[in-house]
Design a protein around this nucleic acid. Sequence first.
DNA 1: ATTGGTATGTTATAATATAACAAAAAGAGG
DNA 2: CCTCTTTTTGTTATATTATAACATACCAAT
Lengths: 164, 164
Amino acid sequence: MSHNHKKCIKTSLEFAHKVSQDKAMRLTPQRLQVLKILLDDHKALGAYEILERLRDMNLASQTTPQPPTVYRALDFLLEMGLVHKVESQNSYYACMIERSADGVHIAQAFICESCGAVEEKTAEASVKKLYEKAATFGFEVNQVIMECRGFCANCQKQNEFFYE
Amino acid sequence: MSHNHKKCIKTSLEFAHKVSQDKAMRLTPQRLQVLKILLDDHKALGAYEILERLRDMNLASQTTPQPPTVYRALDFLLEMGLVHKVESQNSYYACMIERSADGVHIAQAFICESCGAVEEKTAEASVKKLYEKAATFGFEVNQVIMECRGFCANCQKQNEFFYE
DNA sequence: ATTGGTATGTTATAATATAACAAAAAGAGG
DNA sequence: CCTCTTTTTGTTATATTATAACATACCAAT
Ligand SMILES: [Zn+2]
Ligand SMILES: [Zn+2]
Ligand SMILES: [Zn+2]
Ligand SMILES: [Zn+2]
């Protein structure tokens, strides 16, 4: 997945500010810091990895960030739809799809088990089928979790020799 | 979800024995005990809930089961496709769909957030769409996780007054 | 019987997440 | 600006989920 990641970050941050304003929610410096850590690249990080980076970034400060700090920031960012959780590995990544006004949406994550990269895609088709299935037995859907684990195109190339 | 649960358990156990034989894997008493605990009803249990029940069942024995005992049994049952994990709540439930020879399959779990019941369905349509999406960017799928959280038909009925 | 693989028992600890409460900061209204 | 209320942050402790490591027991095949 090669792209202009600087621009990618810029767009995401602009959207984050916008959606926070719209919802009258406060994207405080701490929350922003966590978001930036996750935007750093397209990988999912565990809460304690985020904590480490947060500490690295705040060596000058008098206080050392603690776990609740990270989890609170994540709660906020998840709520705003700016970050998603990879349930199958208890890790978190910054949303990377173009969104309309509202930040909240169903994410479909493709997680590479070799390099750890996460590709997020919209999932209208699969989700539609899933809703149809739910309807067949009267299930009312609140939340959909779709995760796909495997190998990204890059890692397949790099490991071609395995298949010879 | 009303059905003949006695028969439901019987069928599942028979299948478990069969698939273990076929794969030359050993469905030992401990593993069987954990499976039976999960078959008890169509809910997902956490590993430590399973542990408690296991302890209750083995009060007579000299030894008290420990966490690794549960996790090892779960690893086995997951591997055999006899049990699935609900990634979004770190819990486990016994597979409840009719399966062909091989026990391993993609499960689609509908989890009621009110009563905790899990309905498992086959998900061919959604999964097909998901594979198609993966193909568009060369992603090689190893594992698919599909979980749907919401309210089952029963709980909707019982809470109708909420919507008045 | 010996051996090599598999399963279990046991202890300790790692990794993930939250409770609870105090202090500080921010926003709303006068 | 001052006060009140709500939200956010700091801090300590602890709950919850999962695995490492190593010893022992079991089982099956030579
Ligand atoms: Zn990018
Ligand atoms: Zn997203
Ligand atoms: Zn049943
Ligand atoms: Zn199943």
